[in-house]
Nucleic acid binder design. Sequence first.
DNA 1: CTGTTAGCGCGTTCAC
DNA 2: GTGAACGCGCTAACAG
Lengths: 331, 331
Amino acid sequence: MATIKDVAKLANVSVATVSRVLNGSAKVSKTAKDAVLQAREELGFVLNANARALAHQNSEIIGAVVSDVSDPYFGTMAKAIEKTAHNLNAKLLIAQGFHDKQRERQAIENLLSYKCRAYIVHALAMSDHEITHYLNLVPAMVLINRKVTGYEHRCINIDNKYGTYLATLELIKHGHHNIAYVGSSHNILDAKERLAGFNQALKDNNIKLNKEFVFKDEPSLEGGERVALKLLDIVNKITAIVTYNDTQAVSIISVLTQHGINIPNDISIVGFDNLYMSRFLNPPLSTVINPVESMAHEALMLSLSISKNEHYLPSNFEVSFVARNSIKTLN
Amino acid sequence: MATIKDVAKLANVSVATVSRVLNGSAKVSKTAKDAVLQAREELGFVLNANARALAHQNSEIIGAVVSDVSDPYFGTMAKAIEKTAHNLNAKLLIAQGFHDKQRERQAIENLLSYKCRAYIVHALAMSDHEITHYLNLVPAMVLINRKVTGYEHRCINIDNKYGTYLATLELIKHGHHNIAYVGSSHNILDAKERLAGFNQALKDNNIKLNKEFVFKDEPSLEGGERVALKLLDIVNKITAIVTYNDTQAVSIISVLTQHGINIPNDISIVGFDNLYMSRFLNPPLSTVINPVESMAHEALMLSLSISKNEHYLPSNFEVSFVARNSIKTLN
DNA sequence: CTGTTAGCGCGTTCAC
DNA sequence: GTGAACGCGCTAACAG
């Protein structure tokens, strides 16, 4: 690989001049400029970002840890982060935590080694204790979908409880009383909050919670599949299902349908997240809109502002409900 | 941020010793080692990857350009690349091309500035001329889903034609003769090959191609949605649809179903890619299995081997057909 | 086993 | 307007 020296030599100028024209950091004579540009072209030269970061003492990398990029939710998040990063001329370094303590730690350490300009971290498996350690170490680190006491201003969250509350309420409004809840088996805040929203909605409407109707499994297609198989046993006792997320809903719909149960005629269902494809499901899924993109954007802006010692106040993330076609009105 | 000097000072050793223990690159006395580890802990120190790369003259970054990480196909690809990278102790730097000439170029240049260890590039909008330029410049660059004459050994592809051939054949075997084809509007090799596979299957079975039955639009949910609306006009003349990819199939199924058309009873449909969720669609989608994961893996291995001047022969990527429930047998 | 030192590629003074 | 030289944080000889 060619270096700045090679360019300088070929252009018959000093490295300083090359640096100046390539960065536009100072006036350079047209002759010199043209020579440099010509040489650069000839060598296919690109400035070494590592060396630049070292000399310049600032990185253009945005580090993000997500659970799994192939998960539509995180894919969308990653895309949103990259979008904002791109506008800031920054690049996206991705690490995956796979909801595993070790992997999450490793992911964070990897990013740290790149001395990123900002850190957006979605890590739910780690202990509060450990994450606090990193939070203290790295001012530019912002958490997404997690709340750590004492660091609330560096945590970006939505109102999960309210989201599921809305979804459950919608079902109740449509006349449903025997509602099953499919939660996440991950022992994380989101899971508790969403379940709480479900319970609250029942309570506010004087519906007794039937513990037999509450399930939990991975918030994945497979998780939904497993739960659906269990759901089959109580399918005659319920008229609706509230799920932890759209992904679970997808496979639950699939399995139930395969077993001759019609959605929404036999069983209504609501999701959470409003994934990109949810409106194209069969039936189109009624769900809670999770503003991932704006969360990702705000998380990055927050992180950046912290580095600059600014006080950035992330906007509020409103969750809302979108009615589509997976709920039947009971008389 | 603490540097290696700070650690050295705190541990009362030289920077060389710190480097040695942190890299395990040479024997160090237990006393020194413990002191270093202790100091590192205290400072929360992490080696600067940029500086390491500079000194070491080799990066641990794998650069990948994909169209859009939020697209399930590319999400899966990214995950697969990261998996292999992780096993090699490397990190994944992602750039998105969004199927745009400019963005693709920019994506590649960005990655180049990081002097990555390997480059996996999915860029279909760029001209052959331009991509060749980069191919010449960067030996470690490998193309995915693209074939450039003279660089075949650096291109990782599947047999697209055969894939769609298989899918179409399956339909024909089930008695379908009036089959629509929904292609990609991108002017790329994949699109041509898949269409060719469709045509070939018809030809081999003495079915005349009805040009009225051939459509093209973006290989996205929206693209499928638009085409589906047009499909409505000829829905009485056809019994089956071959799509460019599963994503299109998803929205086509959705729109047709919303219009009272039953899949597969009224219209059969086959996809391409076998996305993670395709088996959970309603109905479960019969489709062509696209071995993205192994392609991604092999692409990375190939790139790495080229850098080492080795001759790596990527394994063959077999496409195959998976029958699920979106095809009806005609009598 | 350990410390000193010379680069790695680049940005940036500071003289000229 | 330009070049020489130092330093960014780290690794890898080279001495000791």
